[in-house]
Amino acid sequence: MNKLLEVRDLEVSFSTYVGEVKAVRGVSLELDKGETLAIVGESGSGKSVTSKSLMRLLPSPMARIKNGEILFEGRDVAKLSEKEMQDIRGAEISMIFQDPMTSLNPTMTVGKQIDEVILKHQKVSKAEAAKRSVELLALVGIPQPETRYKQYPHQMSGGMRQRVVIAMALACNPKILIADEPTTALDVTIQAQILDLMRDLQEKTGTAIILITHDLGVVANMASRVAVMYAGKIVEVGTVDEIFYQPKHPYTMGLLASMPKLHMQEEQLMAIPGTPPDLLDPPKGCGFASRCPYALEICLSYQPEHMRCSDTHQAACWLLDERAPKMDDTVGWRERSLT
């Protein structure tokens, strides 16, 4: 019971005009104090929806948590009242968004925007909040914080705005920081700075980070554990080393194989052929079966359970079943990439 966050069988659906889109289909994950968990997957795999549902920030009434529990320090977030949820947002769990150019209010000074979080969650005067905001700006490495405090977002660069967003997220020392593709919209040089900053701040504050990304480079840099998502499910979860060096799920292998490498001889980049399944009508069996070079007959009709590979490593794939034929780790993908 010492897990900070425990998600069990989370199911999230969006009702649309054409029907119900099952964006998240039974996700379970855990987060310890102070650790960094990366959730990777391609667009539409449900990683952002999962993270937003942890804070209950999904657009209602279109999106709905249909099933499952989100236990934050033992309390089920999914069942809290809106008022109780507001006390958690920004104070206990906070979030950094993808695009710093649009995630700050253009008509409010950045200082006021940081003050707001502090005033909401801490019993301090406006002057104290302002003082704390300036300190936060300095903490996230913004020069001349007093001047910047009075400026509007449009007077700052993208990297600087993302620093402001981070300052805002950390203002109340949250226990969990959800970073939803925090560097995707930034220049490569700025990306590295922002990641460094996040790592530094994590060391100082001991905040646990859930890092949502599709950039495996970022994962290798930041995370201690990785969860790989595909078609609304977690297909594999393990430590960074396990995922990068002993991937068990063919999708994870495909992801790793499609990363360009410096020593690569071939000119063509490897891609996973096909497209993810339509979540309006999700497949009966494994979501990846139709694209999987190793797919067995059973994969098409039955969902694989999570199978333990080690204490920290699990993957949901029929190939790991003891009755399955043994596969040669790499052949399948290499054959694909050459055709």
């Binding site: 804070m55 920030l57 809106e82 507001q86 006390d87 958690i88 947002r89 920004g90 104070a91 906070s94 979030m95 968004f97 695009d99 649009t102 995630s103 700050l104 209010n105 253009p106 008509t107 409010m108 707001e116 979080v117 909401k120 969650h121 967003v165 805002m168 997220a169």
Partner: peptide, 26 residues
């Protein structure tokens, strides 16, 4: 629909505060 409204909600502001302080002026 804007991102900064989600940001404001993520701060834990009440719906009223989000609308009055962030949405109306814009």
């Amino acid at each position: 629909q804007q991102d900064y409204i989600t940001t404001a909600k993520a701060k834990g502001l009440t719906n009223m505060a989000v609308v009055m302080r962030h949405a109306v002026r814009n």
